[in-house]
Simulated scan of single mutants.
Amino acid sequence: MTATHSPTAAASGANATERFKSDKFAGVEGTPPERVSLLAREVLEAVHATIRKHKVTYEEYNALKSWLISVGEDGEWPLFLDVWVEHVVEDVATEHRQGNKGTIEGPYYVPDAPEQGARGSIPTRDNEPGTALTWTGQVTSTTGAALGGAKVELWHADADGLYSQFAPDIPEWNLRGTFTTDDEGRFEIHTVRPAPYQIPTDGACGKLIAAAGWHAWRPAHLHVKVSAPGHELLTAQLYFPGDEHNDDDIASAVKPELLLAPQPSGDGETIEYNFVLDPAL
């Protein structure tokens, strides 16, 4: 592992919180009170059952209360929920699909990354660290039809495990791009191989990790969102074989279907990975 530097919890948490509040909440407006009551009551009942089962003490309760306050003060609710809860929501939301498997979005997605065409390079700094990576693929429907004009949004961490717009001194759109497939649904992307990284550990989430004796590592991965008219949006992360944390990812987001198969090529690597999208319900 080489990526040991990470943005502060406060800085990345504040950015993720503000972005989440601005573009995510509208989707649940108008939820019936009965649905809200059902979910809230069952979550609380699960907490109550844990307290009774394990005879939680007042000292432990007060420590939990203090820690929950810290999660909010550090702006880490998006990080906490995306790392330890989102993978189950994703499983439930996509269990009906016949096409590609997806996984969590994570807290670092930014919409409207610059368009690069069907064949292009993701924006990078001069001499961007990392092994050159060329990715070719095709987007099709479960019907077998090629999906020309499909969007492949790609973003990933740099060689230090940092994301643009969530860490200082990185250009706004570094390692973020949108690619649009050609008439045959094909694309070719030039980027660099990302590094494994630790999630921020200097805030409340880090305190939980330390207290529980867990690790904070995520395996190296490429984030994607793939979309086409009349089809369901696919959100996924693609992983590299041999990473020591593929089997114990802190976010529990790795699936066998999401593992890549890089091949050496010149001074870099090539990968081929295709997407099959489900028609919209």
Results as ranks from 00 to 15, higher is better:
Asp112Ala: 12
Ala113Glu: 08
Ala113Asp: 13
Ala113Trp: 03
Glu115Val: 10
Gly117His: 07
Gly117Arg: 06
Ala118Tyr: 09
Ala118Met: 03
Arg119Thr: 15
Ser121Pro: 13
Ser121Cys: 09
Ser121Tyr: 08
Thr124Leu: 14
Arg125Cys: 08
Arg125His: 07
Asn127Leu: 10
Glu128Lys: 03
Glu128Thr: 06
Pro129Leu: 06
Pro129Ala: 07
Thr131Val: 14
Thr131Trp: 04
Ala132Met: 07
Ala132Asn: 13
Leu133Ile: 05
Leu133Phe: 05
Leu133Cys: 05
Leu133Met: 14
Trp135Ser: 01
Thr136Arg: 15
Thr136Gly: 11
Gly137Arg: 04
Gln138Arg: 13
Gln138Tyr: 05
Thr140Asn: 09
Thr140Ala: 14
Thr140Asp: 10
Thr140His: 04
Thr142Ala: 10
Ala145Glu: 15
Ala146His: 15
Gly148His: 09
Gly148Thr: 13
Gly149Tyr: 10
Ala150Ser: 15
Leu154Gly: 02
Trp155Asn: 00
Ala157Tyr: 03
Ala159His: 12
Gly161Tyr: 02
Leu162Trp: 13
Gln165Leu: 08
Gln165Trp: 05
Gln165Glu: 15
Pro168Trp: 08
Asp169Gly: 05
Pro171Phe: 06
Pro171Met: 06
Leu175Ser: 11
Leu175Thr: 04
Leu175Lys: 06
Arg176Ile: 03
Gly177Asn: 10
Phe179Gly: 02
Phe179Trp: 08
Thr180Val: 15
Thr180Ala: 04
Thr181Pro: 03
Asp182Pro: 05
Asp182Gly: 13
Glu184Asn: 15
Gly185Asn: 11
Arg186Met: 09
Phe187Asp: 04
Phe187Arg: 00
Glu188Pro: 01
Ile189Arg: 07
Ile189His: 10
Ile189Pro: 08
Val192Glu: 06
Arg193Ile: 09
Arg193Pro: 05
Arg193Asn: 07
Pro194Asp: 04
Pro194Gly: 02
Tyr197Leu: 11
Gln198Asn: 14
Pro200Met: 02
Pro200Ala: 03
Thr201Leu: 01
Thr201Arg: 01
Asp202Pro: 04
Gly203Pro: 12
Ala204Cys: 08
Ala204Phe: 07
Gly206Val: 02
Ile209Cys: 05
Ala210Arg: 13
Ala211Tyr: 07
Ala211His: 07
Ala212Tyr: 07
Trp214Ser: 08
Trp217Arg: 13
Trp217His: 07
Pro219His: 04
Ala220Arg: 13
His221Gly: 01
His221Met: 02
His221Leu: 01
Leu222Cys: 01
His223Thr: 00
Val224Gln: 00
Val226Gly: 01
Ala228Ser: 15
Ala228Tyr: 09
Pro229Trp: 08
Gly230Leu: 02
His231Cys: 04
His231Arg: 13
Leu233Tyr: 03
Leu233Ile: 08
Leu233Thr: 15
Thr235Phe: 00
Thr235Trp: 00
Ala236Trp: 00
Ala236Met: 00
Leu238Trp: 12
Pro241Ser: 12
Pro241Val: 13
Gly242Phe: 09
Glu244Leu: 14
Asp247Cys: 00
Asp248Leu: 01
Ala251Ile: 09
Val254Thr: 10
Lys255His: 09
Pro256Asn: 03
Leu258Trp: 00
Leu259Ala: 03
Leu259Pro: 04
